[in-house]
Write a protein that binds this DNA or RNA. Sequence first.
DNA 1: CCATCATTCTAATAATCTTTAGATTGTCAG
DNA 2: CTGACAATCTAAAGATTATTAGAATGATGG
Lengths: 223, 223
Amino acid sequence: MESRKTKDLLFEQVARVGKAVASPKRLELLELLSQGEKTVEVLATEVSIDIKLASAHLKVLREARLVEARREGRFIAYRLSGDDIISLWLNLRSVAEKHLVELRVALDEIFSAPERLTAESRASLLEKARQGEVIVIDVRPEVEYRVGHLPFSRSLPLAEIERRLAELPPGKEVVAYCRGPFCLLSDEAVKLLCERGFRARKISDGVAEWAAEGLPVEVLAEA
Amino acid sequence: MESRKTKDLLFEQVARVGKAVASPKRLELLELLSQGEKTVEVLATEVSIDIKLASAHLKVLREARLVEARREGRFIAYRLSGDDIISLWLNLRSVAEKHLVELRVALDEIFSAPERLTAESRASLLEKARQGEVIVIDVRPEVEYRVGHLPFSRSLPLAEIERRLAELPPGKEVVAYCRGPFCLLSDEAVKLLCERGFRARKISDGVAEWAAEGLPVEVLAEA
DNA sequence: CCATCATTCTAATAATCTTTAGATTGTCAG
DNA sequence: CTGACAATCTAAAGATTATTAGAATGATGG
């Protein structure tokens, strides 16, 4: 059967993509990269693995063409090779969330108030943010805010919240978001804000989840 | 870092799904299962692997909750555990088709006339089929036709075409489809029909691709 | 109950992937 | 040109996965 062999080639190619997303660390890298271009050093630090190992995993992603590398001075910056890679990550995650009980249990254990948004609650949040009824804060590092953020949100990275508490009008409800449902940043931000007497909650959406619902995303122009 | 460890749990769960789709054979099984429920024996035969090996691969898919098993007399029938699994397969394949040159080359080598449909050509095909201007034939095994098929199509499995040539009105254009762009059945059907003097072409869509465009699919009620 | 058939389970080997450490490449600043 | 640094390459150990063959399970039909 000659045709069987050549047909297997097709599935092998798709399996290259499958193999690339078969490792938790590579998935974490993809999630980070969906927040924008990053250097190997930054990626390794965020995932808390050795740079050599990060480089090896990035090589696998690069060979499956899920990411692209670009030299930027002494650094090498990686980015997703297309928006369809973000969709693939969201798709994989949603299949896992739907079918794996273990994942739902783990999510419940890790996160305090896992508020999942519906189309309505997204629209109403957007409206309230527009009218200034709530303050939407983006607690990711500021670079990621610049690449894209929710409309009417302001950047207030977790690392700077304590120092910049005065920027938040007291009494007003604060809504924090970060990289998405697997990211702890907004969770810690809410804990911190509540301890300081703010009325704060978090939403599970990140920019990718928001955009996947067809909602608008704001971008700051490059310098 | 206690929180890091628990966070890794999340990505590990998604990676379970990734690992399940990291093997060409399992992807082939998923593609077959997206045409409907099938026994281990049928699956093993179609993928041309040993039943024991098929069973092992199905176990992996089952443990990742991508498929479910059901005992049916002496047989065990497997099915996808949801329509989102079909979407995942389509998503993986489309990422591979977009980013891996090797896949596009392989597709060109294997298939004679890879006619890819657009929204317009799908609509016009549907209209022509409705008016009887073209004969749309489903060349998959008849069971798969019963589970779901394109509107105004008739079942004419590849294995029976030669014997049932009389059913096709001569002169009329025949359009063949099968399981999708990775399936050889329609290709062979077209070759056979052209040799017998018919005006035949194939489309790359299968039922899943058709449905993913939001187009209607017909189902025959169970006996 | 026995024999049969479809499938799974178990155990063993081969193949592949992950991780680590050391050597190497390529860029920039002096 | 040299030193410092980011990142990759290479090689080897450890961990997982794929594949195969033989034994075990579970339903069926006599």
